[in-house]
Design a protein around this nucleic acid. Sequence first.
RNA 1: GUGGCUGUAGUUCAGUUGGUAGAGCACAGGAUUGUGGUUCCUGGGGUCGCGGGUUCAAGCCCCGUCAGCCACCCCA
Length: 422
Amino acid sequence: MKYPIPRGTFDILPESSYKWNYIESLFKDIAERYNYRRITTPIFERTELFERSVGNTSDIVEKEMYKFQDKKGRNFALRPEGTAGVVRSLVDNALASQGSLAMLWYMGPMFRYDRPQKGRYRQFYQYGIENIGSHHPFIDAEVISIGWVLLKTLGLKGFELQINSLGDDTDSAVYDAALISYFTPYKKSLCQDCLNRLERNPKRLLDCKVSTCKEIAAQAPNILEFLSDDNQQHFHLVQRYLKLMNIPFIINPRIVRGLDYYTHTAFEFVTDSLGTQNTLLGGGRYNKLVEQMGGKPMPGIGFAGGFERLMMVMEQEGCSFGKKPLPQAYFIVAGDVAQEPAIKLMQSLREQGIALTWNPDKISFKAQMKSADKSGATWTLIIGEDEVAASTVTIRNMETGKQQAVSISDTDIIAEYILNNK
RNA sequence: GUGGCUGUAGUUCAGUUGGUAGAGCACAGGAUUGUGGUUCCUGGGGUCGCGGGUUCAAGCCCCGUCAGCCACCCCA
């Protein structure tokens, strides 16, 4: 290993790339089915974009960003998540304006300088959805349903949808104050992390895994009791729409997403088969973000999920990844005289859309036959001296063992054999 | 950023009380003239993650380093 791969990154090798293609195209299909269109933004942006959107106190910005300066000293960062760039583009390009929604999907690599672990990488691949321009609770439910349909269509079983509402700024501020006054008397019993959280982001305290903190947090006030009437109503409607769509969920008032821009609805699809990194897909509303990024005030909601985790759970649950791509036909070329007609026929069949291959380095007939077998192709086309003399090609079906000579000039007939598998 | 475990052929691993490496699978070739998937035979491949140290001698011991895994943390 002269040049080891960077820590926390991985290669997607040819033998498994069809699995990635499968999941990617399934996600594309589903998003397009909901009338969402693809948006692709740069994988690096000005550092401030992430600092302002994701939030200065978030771990992502504080310690997980890949930052660099370009030759003119401008500060950039590799994107740690997708929403910031999409919102930036929306503002730049006026993608949503009074009453017209922006309905967008994206996929691509994200970067976070974290310690690698199961289901956690430094360069990882996300797919995501953003719907910007509506505050209608049905949109919340629709966005959630895209995630639901995706996981279901992939064949996953052991996952659960958890939803919560974080309310708006006012609710959130009141709730934070309530948390602070609740936890302050317990200061002596809280862990160091939680003491910090208490000052910077009290909601995170609800998530602590230290048992003493957990016990204290168990009796903490519930966010849902701090929602304004409107926000309460919004949350109820989201639930109602989910029920109409037959999407099961549970309410988890402890969902606190790690990015600061979330408001109102927050949700996660979690699985029990991934160990500790169990979030398959997470998202929520961000009704202040567009304005914060310099656009006109506009509500939005979205989610993002990680491809790696999907793959892992699918492997574990034995889900299908579609068909492994195989050549339709394998060429066996025996003897020098056969080369010229073989190459001509090969080219003509490929132009007709047939996937075929050969290995000019294999010399003996038997070696080529073995290679044909291993390739997985159903058909083998054989051209040797006999065939050249008779101007034919031998077509062999590798499953049945039947074979037949066809005139080498009848490429349509040859193609038909292969395409119709007859 | 912290802690624990691990690091030997392409791969999965073995390697005895320290004496300079082995197996299965995979791969390649062959078992009489142009026919694969079973079987049999043969073969190619490893500076034992990297760098130091102890020792007459280290894959085995010690230190460092890098990487992987798991957990903390955080989240996709």
